[in-house]
Design a protein around this nucleic acid. Structure first.
Lengths: 228, 228
DNA sequence: TGTGAGAATTTTGAATTCATAATACCTTTT
DNA sequence: AAAAGGTATTATGAATTCAAAATTCTCACA
């Protein structure tokens, strides 16, 4: 029997708004109408406003005093900064994972890696990305550091809505796969320093930023939704 | 206690509660009475509850459904995990700082370093720690990565209230100063990789945790306030 | 036609009210 | 006296209300 969990309304609402932002139903810079959202969610303003405050502290939304809330407009610099940070966190997750991971955990990653390789060889980009993501998630979980996990997920959430045009060049892709080969080798040896180093330098993040920089040239210019 | 000015009320309230937690006026595990806090701050429950939700998303407070809020009880593991994370963030800040810092910025850090050295040689622990902190702050600022700064400050805030007993042994202290010598050398050369490496491995954080582990043996055991 | 002062409307910020869940209290029974 | 059960009280969750700020609209006037 599953546990009865009373969900707080504001939590529920925050989740829904996160989805709307991630999904592009609420556009960056767009004014968030409390009245309208209350109507669509069927709740009063109290939990809605609580949710907005939480989202603001998560960096997804900005609150202008007496002038309502709006979705944060990402600039190229913000995205770059965030990816730099995520790289560092992935590096740490790799180091810790090597200390903490079980043999079964290593086995699971090896299997995912092989699955990913087959997608690579079959040129299946979307499944490749999916399994790729799972590998990084497994390493993050293996770190056994919940603070790290929480922070990484928050950062990930912030930039999730700029799902860059996936114009992966062949050489970039080959390099990424090579990185992954080295990662698996490092984790098998439980060489944390090495795995951390590889993950920090892993070009996945840099690649994403590179494909973004094609869209927006100006550093200060706000970044609008990339078509997905 | 002075009443709060009516401007961005929930923000003011959140700041005040942060202070109360940091200062030890609200103890870990202690139930936070909305009514009582409303009375002391002179505000209604609405902004107070908004503030609590923000603090919860910052990891300072936990909300139990229908059972109110309480200050998060830090466990040794949580503190360790947080320090690991802060080490990684400091590492990144070092790497970035070397790319971004101005000559004047380097000069400022060198001056602080020399000031710190004199406190070391005069055996002045508290001023030493103060200047030490300023150096790390300068490097963080020099990184020019606001997302990083925000995250670091959040983590720092979480563990601020366990101001460990500063029983610095002579050898630990000497090692820490040596680390700082190397840091300054690295930043003068603008060797980001090196500075990042030093900061990640800098024993400052480990030292703090070590002094904590003297207080609490059990991993799972919640960590109460260390006397400051 | 365009502009600006000022009223009307809408929207936000915060207090209050109402409903419900949790806790404390007080019987009753053994 | 201790335990169980039920009632009263209190605290929380959420909607509503009220006040103030921002926005829109109107219309006089250039």
């Amino acid at each position: 029997m599953s546990k009865i969990q009373h969900r707080n309304l504001y939590r529920e609402v925050a989740d829904r708004i996160r989805d709307l932002i991630e999904h592009g139903d609420l556009l960056p810079g767009e004014r968030i109408s409390e009245k309208h959202l209350c109507a669509t969610f069927g709740v009063s303003r109290t939990p809605l406003r609580e949710a907005l405050k939480v989202l603001a502290s998560e960096g997804l939304v900005e609150l202008l005093p007496n002038r309502g809330a709006r979705v944060v407009q990402l600039t190229l610099k913000m995205v770059k900064d965030t990816y730099d940070l995520m790289g560092a966190l992935e590096g740490l997750s790799g180091e810790l994972a090597c200390q903490e991971i079980s043999d079964a955990g290593i086995e699971r990653i090896v299997e995912l890696h092989e699955k990913m390789l087959s997608h690579y060889h079959n040129n299946e980009l979307t499944p490749y990305f999916e399994v790729n993501k799972q590998i990084h998630e497994q390493i993050l979980l293996a770190s056994k550091n919940e603070v790290l996990q929480e922070m990484y997920n928050n950062l990930s959430q912030r930039v999730k809505r700029v799902r860059y045009s996936k114009k992966m060049t062949a050489s970039f892709w080959r390099q990424a796969v090579e990185d992954h080969e080295n990662m698996v080798a490092a984790i098998k040896k439980r060489d944390g320093k090495l795995l951390g180093q590889i993950l920090r330098d892993h070009l996945c993040n840099k690649l994403e930023v590179a494909s973004l920089s094609g869209v927006i040239e100006d550093e200060a210019m706000p970044l609008s939704m990339a078509s997905s």
